[in-house]
């Protein structure tokens, strides 16, 4: 039912009749009820005509608006707020349609409008987005530049130091390894020899 309210909100925002969406319930045993619901809904849509006709929206404009709405609904912020709202509704434990619609409207209109405006900004006002990008990107670049610079020398120094240490360390290690391996091999050989003898 939260979904219901959210979709109604978004459809109203883009100027489409919310009656084009319907959420209904009919159990598996309620075939007549299902038929009634579908007949009613179909009749309603027939009256309204094709999408955008009764609303007076041109097909091109309609497509732009629908794409915007889809992007808004899929945006992370709206989804986050929606998820949190449904969680809070579950906690409250009140499941009437009016209450849920009220809560969704109260909490989500801001996020939805924000998502629409975020969508509009790059299309309508390019200089603003350019400024934003100019403001945002140099900082990131500077930050990106600053970070690796101190790291690199440190890494180099570490690399320089490492091989020397490795050489020192590796020589005795190898010797130790050889020593360790030798007796094992010997032991293995002895074992196989013993097995052969047994056979």
């Amino acid at each position: 039912m939260g979904m219901n309210a959210l979709i109604f909100n978004v459809l109203q925002e883009i100027g489409i009749n919310p009656a084009r969406f319907s959420l209904q319930w009919a159990s598996a045993a309620e075939a007549p009820r299902f038929v009634k619901l579908i007949t009613e809904f179909s009749g309603k849509i027939k009256e309204l005509g094709p999408l955008g006709e009764s609303e007076g929206i041109e097909p091109d404009e309609l497509k732009i608006r629908l794409d915007k709405a889809l992007a808004a609904v899929s945006s992370r912020k709206v989804r986050m707020v929606y998820g949190n709202t449904t969680k809070s509704i579950r906690k409250e434990g009140i499941f009437t349609q009016e209450y849920i619609s009220g809560v969704i409207e109260e909490k989500l209109t801001k996020a939805i409008k924000g998502a629409f405006e975020a969508d509009k900004a790059p299309k309508e006002a390019k200089p603003v987005s350019g400024k934003k990008a100019a403001k945002g990107s140099p900082k990131k670049k500077v930050a990106a530049k600053e970070k690796p610079e101190p790291k690199k020398p440190a890494k180099k120094a570490a690399k320089k130091a490492e091989p020397a240490a490795k050489k020192k360390a590796s020589a005795p290690k190898k010797a130790a390894a050889k020593k360790a391996a030798a007796p094992k091999k010997g032991a293995a050989k002895k074992k196989t020899a013993a097995k052969k003898k047994k056979k």
């Binding site: 979904m3 959420l23 209904q24 619901l37 849509i45 309204l48 094709p50 999408l51 629908l66």
Partner: peptide
């Protein structure tokens, strides 16, 4: 998901019925 419904409208549905 709400995105399913809007996608349906984008793809050219005139009305969307959700039945639970």
């Amino acid at each position: 998901d709400p995105a399913f419904v809007l996608r349906g409208f984008v793809e050219g549905a005139d009305g969307i019925f959700t039945g639970g």
